[in-house]
Design a protein around this nucleic acid. Sequence first.
RNA 1: GGUUCCAUGGCCGAGUGGCUAGGCAGAGGUCUGCAAAACCUUACACAGCGGUUCGAAUCCGCUUGGAACCUCCA
Length: 497
Amino acid sequence: MAKLQLHNSLTRKKEVFEPINPPYVGMYVCGPTVSGESHLGHARPYITFDVVFRYLTQLGYHVRYVRNITDAGHFEEEGREAEDKISQKALLERLEPMELVQKYTNLYHWAMRQFNCLPPSIEPTATGHIIEQISMIRKIMDAGYAYEVNGSVYFDVKKYAEHYPYGILSGRKLDDLLETTRDLEGQEEKRNKVDFALWKKAPPEHIMRWKSPWGEGFPGWHIECSAMSSKYLGNQFDIHGGGMDLQFPHHECEIAQSTIALGEMPARYWMHNNMITINGRKMGKSYNNIIKLSEVFSGNHPLLERGYSPMTVRFFVLQTHYRSTLDFSNEGLQAAEKGFERLWSAYEVLKNLPESGADMPADKELDEQVTKLCRECEEFLNDDFNTAKVLANLFELVPIINSLKSGQIKTNNLQKKTFSLLKQTWKIYLEDILGLKKDTGSQDDKLAGVMDLLLSIRKDVRSKKDYATSDKIRDALNKVGITVKDEKDGGASWSAN
RNA sequence: GGUUCCAUGGCCGAGUGGCUAGGCAGAGGUCUGCAAAACCUUACACAGCGGUUCGAAUCCGCUUGGAACCUCCA
């Protein structure tokens, strides 16, 4: 079996994946800040790492997948809004901070279910781990790499960089940073502008606050991930994932914190997904170009021609390699929608084909082609999770599957084992690993019953060549969004959109 | 300004030296009462200029254009 290779941001190379304690794998992925609703850009890492989680599991690893919820709020450390994002918004919305956090956590979970993302093994919250964070800060202070000023604690980056490779992950050089970092307000307390906060003193109006050895305050921007990942996965674990925009400073700071407090780098493999762009520009609050997930689904947004289903979005994301940027467009989504529909209906056809095949394939070439296309899927995923290539192979199998159904390709053209390999491949890759599923339409049993009746009436009138009535039924159904397709054997199928 | 990355056919997107992924849209055909679907065939490409090589979308250099990070960010 080929080995799984993944691109390690730390070394900027593809490396063979070797877990620290096989068959166990620890994976930590930076989760959302639940101070607002998730947008399309957020969907990418969660879908990406869902596939990583699923594939590692498929390979037989016992994966502990930890994905945090940032509910303590990252404050805008340097200036402009020197206040906790969550509490600020809470005031505006006249909600309790935790009420707000709960609301958006629920929404986030809802969106993840829509995308068919498996829940992580542990989903720790920052507010639930204040003690762990404080204790980690203390270790860093004891080691002499952090200092307290006016009830806040900062990490001494300059000192750290004298002994450790600060910038190892992001390729930054401290000197460059010292030169180029802008002068912003609220920096006076720091010894150097590259220092970052481990603990922040809470101003009087700040609602979210906890007691600490340094007075009342709240944890700094980066410490929660270090504290929680080490608590649940150990000082060093296998994979740390997140968006590329977290590589610096967030993940670089995590490395510094863990190196001092725990004596080693937190993760061996770092994986970063690229951004979703819109008109070539990253989707983000500061660019004012975000489309919330609920808006994507409903189509209720000026940039959207209409809504797109969660599976369309998932498919759209998986058609691109996770380290490339993915540009949003209505055209792209609509192409994805059609493509996915075609792929999925072929899968349904395949599922309904009876197990068959010959002992010796009548068409050896075809048999080999099918086998190759199926087998390559594993190879592609092993090559840094190339979901795009897996989908391409499945698409290449679509005409073969459809022809098997229509009889243009006889089932004895394939070997029995090839036939079952084909079925297995689609089940495992499409459903289990890529995590795609049928879009849940509005169909219910009652509708299905009504449709059965209508189609059977229509079949009767067609047998009498009463095409006027036949077309009337089809046209009327079309108007309410139900498509009827006549099939060669005289039957008909329908689908609602 | 510093660091890093990208530039593929009408659109989206794989692809790290030779064997021209794939999807959507387009064209022609088969099937069909018609339609849809399906199936078959098919046009369209590697930003520009140099270089390395028997051979480059793929390696190197330059130019142009774009992006990300350096501020919260997936």
